[in-house]
């Protein structure tokens, strides 16, 4: 921002008042809930905290959460790179429609995102009878949870890459090609270094949402303890059983993931000067 001259600066008392109001609002509304998670998690002591994280069902939930993210995130990253290459480097009909469709999953309620897969693969769904005849489990099993996670995290990487690649243009790629590089070499040596921060940024946002997703995964999971409960679903189970210390212990793991994401995101924004987005 350009520094305004004295004539348009607000008086000091007004500044103090407004800063005070904003700080106390953000403190009470955002920071206190965050702090409360850790206080509640450690309320019964460190031993209870660690046993809540290491008991079998929690361990299974952590492994499942990591597995689902490890499948969903690379798929969406690959899609993001492919989509941004097609959209930023070429002219074709229906491009703005394609752009709008990529954003679609952000507009859909997580519950509906889960429901669509139940309609396709559930017992009464379109492919339900066929799947049952071949003994393939998608709903109330890991494949359904991966699909629901892919759906809700679908646009993250593409949304970061498309505007950046459009702004960068294709001149460097043309130069590389005219100097005799192959298409793949051009992508790896020219395009990828140019987009690496935005790609990383998109991937960490995608990953945070993938590991923290609740609504969509809840619909397709079936809530089988130790089998189809991800960490957020495990938190729900513990909370509904009034096992608050354990619920908050698991929630604190997810909060740490969120905080780590926030730190990395802020670092990249400062470093690469990326503009912010809403999602």
């Amino acid at each position: 921002m350009k520094t305004p001259s004295r004539s348009v600066q607000d008086p000091l008392w007004a500044q103090t008042l407004l800063i005070g109001a904003a700080v106390s609002f953000l403190g009470l509304f955002l920071l206190v809930p965050l702090a409360s998670i850790f206080v509640e998690a450690f309320r019964k002591g460190i031993a209870v905290y660690f046993s809540a994280l290491t008991e079998d069902n929690a361990r299974a939930a952590i492994v499942l959460t990591l597995t689902v993210a490890a499948i969903a995130v690379p798929f969406n990253a690959l899609f993001g790179v492919a989509a941004s290459w097609a959209i930023a480097k070429f002219q074709f009909k229906g491009k703005s429609l394609l752009l709008a469709l990529i954003d679609l999953p952000f507009a859909v309620s997580p519950v509906v995102s889960g429901l669509v897969y139940v309609l396709l693969f559930g017992a009464k769904g379109v492919f339900g009878p066929w799947l049952k005849a071949h003994d393939i489990h998608i709903i109330f099993a890991v494949p359904g949870m991966v699909l629901a996670t892919i759906f809700v995290t679908f646009p993250f990487v593409a949304r970061e890459l498309i505007p950046l690649m459009q702004a960068q243009g294709s001149d460097e790629e043309y130069a590389a090609l005219s100097l005799g590089a192959s298409g793949w070499q051009t992508f790896r040596r020219v395009t990828l270094p140019n987009i690496k921060w935005a790609l990383f940024y998109g991937i960490i946002l995608c990953n945070a949402r993938a590991m923290g997703e609740f609504g969509a995964v809840s619909v397709v999971s079936g809530h089988i303890r130790g089998e189809t409960n991800t960490l957020p679903l495990h938190v729900e189970v513990l909370y509904n059983e009034y096992n608050f210390a354990a619920a908050f212990a698991c929630a604190s793991m997810l909060s740490l993931l969120g905080l780590l994401t926030l730190c990395l995101k802020t670092l990249i924004e400062w470093r690469a000067g990326l503009r912010r987005h809403n999602h």
Partner: peptide
């Protein structure tokens, strides 16, 4: 923070 925190975590907090 509300973007970064999983919704279920925000809910129980």
């Amino acid at each position: 923070l509300p973007f970064a925190m999983p919704t279920a975590v925000a809910g129980i907090a």
